[in-house]
């Protein structure tokens, strides 16, 4: 793993609303390194997207109370003015959005939209920008790029649009690429193509990638580090192997167990009881405690911090580490028994 490129320290994003303050992100700390795919997993409303939008300065500062630090190449992105942010955004730091159908302007040719993105940061003439666009489209695997740059977005399929979005994001060789649910709107066979492409780009340009997804399978396949989020906070944070082979937080267990297994016909699914909390009235103590089957005395009073309690990687749960290991092993044994 290379040097750190993005450091987020104690990030808080609160939105005041007439009903109360929505604590979308509430104290988040993590580091992304060069050459690493950093997976952020969580259910809808856990604060995954808000974290990244804030880092890019895409959340209006007037509408939210933002505190903490987001360090990128020596700058604190939260303190920069919009003018100072512009040379960084889209150049050093770029983003792929979830919905490739909504992110390309339907009235402009795909090629012109990428040319515009190039000329935004580089004062090169139109011809050079066009040649670079053809090169980029070729790099992301669009056949006959010199013809296809004259196409409109509706002439592209979903997978091709996502490729065009990736080409646009790569226009200035960013050192960090943020992919917000890049494959959620796509079919599995196309998803496999796009994930392979992102992985290939990461290795070729040695950049960092933040992959936001709700699909644990995707993260287990392509990420090196994983952060599991619940109600605006990280509940578990570690390397992929640590988190998937020895998860230490009951929420991660619940997520892993509620996915139907494709390798074997399992027994009954073990869902997490209840529903995710409202971010206006987050439960006191551990936010997960009302849904947690293992809650005990301090859970609804003290909020557990994200600490390494001796399990090898940081997690936020009051249970003793021996108990966690025992409980996870029991749950795993139980599942194998049901299946066989």
């Amino acid at each position: 793993m290379g040097e750190p490129i993005l450091e987020v320290k104690d990030l808080k994003v609160h939105f005041p609303t007439p009903d109360g303050v929505v604590k979308a992100v509430d104290g988040l700390t993590f580091t992304v390194h060069r050459g690493e795919t950093f997976g952020i997993v969580g259910e809808s409303g856990s604060g995954k997207s808000v974290t990244c939008l804030t880092a890019l300065g895409l959340i209006k500062r007037e509408s939210a109370q933002i505190s903490g630090e987001v360090l990128f190449e020596g700058h604190d992105l939260l303190k920069l003015s919009n003018e100072d942010l512009r040379p960084i955004r889209g150049k050093g730091l770029s983003m792929i959005f979830q919905d490739p159908f909504a992110c390309l302007h339907p009235f402009y040719r795909v090629g012109d939209q990428i040319i515009e993105a190039i000329q935004c940061h580089d004062s090169c003439d139109k011809n050079e920008a066009k040649n670079r666009t053809i090169g980029l489209l070729d790099a992301v695997g669009i056949p006959q790029p010199d013809d296809r740059i004259r196409d409109y977005p509706h002439q592209f399929s979903g997978g091709m649009r996502q490729r065009a979005m990736i080409a646009m994001a790569l226009a200035h060789n960013p050192s960090l690429l943020i992919a917000d649910e890049p494959t959620t709107a796509l079919d599995v066979t196309v998803q496999a193509q796009i994930l392979e492409l992102i992985d290939h780009i990461k290795q070729e340009f040695n950049i960092g990638v933040i992959l936001i997804t709700h699909d644990l399978g995707v993260v287990a396949d392509v990420a090196q580090s994983v952060m599991v989020m619940y109600a605006g906070r990280a509940v578990e944070y570690g390397s992929r192997d640590e988190v998937f082979s020895g998860p230490l937080h009951p929420y991660t267990w619940g997520l892993l167990e509620s996915i139907p297994n494709i390798d074997r016909k399992g027994g009954r699914l073990v869902p997490i009881e209840g529903a995710p909390p409202s971010l206006i009235r987050v439960p006191t103590g551990c936010a997960f405690n009302p849904r947690c089957p293992h809650r005990f005395d301090p859970c609804d009073k003290d909020r557990p911090e994200l600490l390494d309690r001796g399990g090898g990687h940081p997690e936020a749960c009051h249970l003793r580490i021996e108990d966690k290991k025992r409980l996870w092993n029991e749950r795993e044994a139980g599942r194998v028994e049901v299946a066989s």
Binding site: A192, D215, G217, F244, S245
Partner: peptide
């Protein structure tokens, strides 16, 4: 094409 969701 389905991600297996399992390490190892």
């Amino acid at each position: 094409a389905v991600p297996k969701g399992k390490v190892g």
